[in-house]
Simulated assay, not measured.
Amino acid sequence: MDKHLASTLADAVYQRLTYLDKLVANGDVSSKAALADTEIYRLTVAWRRLLGQHQPDKHGRCPQCSGWWLRRRHPCSVWTTAHKHLIVADAQSSSGLARYASPASQPPRG
């Protein structure tokens, strides 16, 4: 992928994420309901496809994150990121942290 196409793709993805963030933060009830009806499904499909690409091979290594010289063991950074944002963040929000807090605004763990 050339540099211009990669930049265009990244810009489009970040713009969509910004749009969704704004809709969650500022949207009315009907907008948020429509968002839930469409975007939650799209995001779960995307996560499943991404995680599927990072399933460990028969040697317990991530085929996407491994290179010729360095073999990455499972779980790779994609799986740990998914766990952090889908499981840990959910547990933190149910314990009183802000539900829509960005990762940067959450207190450090450990």
Rank of each mutant, 00 (worst) to 15 (best):
D28G: 09
S31M: 09
W68A: 14
D37R: 14
S30V: 04
W69H: 10
N26D: 14
S30F: 12
P56Q: 05
N26A: 12
D37Q: 14
G52R: 01
N26R: 14
G67E: 01
R42F: 10
A34C: 12
S66T: 02
R72S: 07
S66K: 00
S30Y: 08
A82Y: 11
R42S: 10
D57V: 02
R49L: 10
H59P: 05
P63E: 01
P63N: 01
V78F: 11
W47I: 07
S77M: 05
V78K: 00
L51F: 00
R71A: 09
A36F: 11
E39I: 06
T44D: 12
L50I: 07
K58Y: 08
A34P: 07
C65E: 05
H74V: 06
G52L: 02
T44Q: 14
S31G: 14
W69V: 06
T38S: 15
L35D: 03
Q64D: 10
L70W: 07
T44A: 10
R42N: 13
H74D: 00
H59V: 00
Q64R: 11
Y41E: 08
Q55L: 12
H59F: 11
S30T: 06
R73T: 09
A25F: 09
H59A: 12
R72C: 10
L51C: 04
P63T: 00
S66R: 05
R48Q: 08
N26F: 15
K58I: 14
W69A: 13
L35T: 08
Q64N: 10
G27M: 05
W69E: 11
N26G: 12
T81I: 04
T44N: 12
S30Q: 15
A34K: 12
T80N: 04
K22S: 10
V45M: 09
V24G: 04
L23M: 10
K32S: 03
R48S: 08
I40Q: 11
S30G: 07
L70D: 09
R49H: 13
G67M: 00
W69L: 15
S31L: 06
G52D: 04
L51W: 05
R42V: 03
V24C: 12
T81N: 08
C65Q: 01
G60T: 00
T81L: 10
S30P: 05
K58A: 15
S31A: 13
Q53G: 15
A36L: 11
P63F: 03
L51G: 01
C62T: 02
A82S: 06
I40Y: 15
W68K: 13
Q64P: 02
C65T: 00
H74G: 01
A34W: 13
G27T: 08
Q53D: 15
W79L: 02
E39G: 08
D28E: 05
C65L: 07
R72V: 13
L43N: 10
A46D: 06
L70N: 12
P63C: 00
A33T: 13
L23V: 01
Y41D: 13
N26Q: 13
C65M: 04
Y41I: 14
L23Y: 06
R61F: 12
S77L: 03
A34S: 13
G67I: 00
C65A: 07
W69Q: 11
H54Q: 01
N26W: 12
H59E: 14
V45E: 11
V45N: 05
K22D: 09
A33Y: 07
C62H: 00
A36K: 03
H54W: 01
L43Y: 14
V45A: 05
W68Y: 15
P75I: 02
S31V: 01
V45Q: 10
W69C: 11
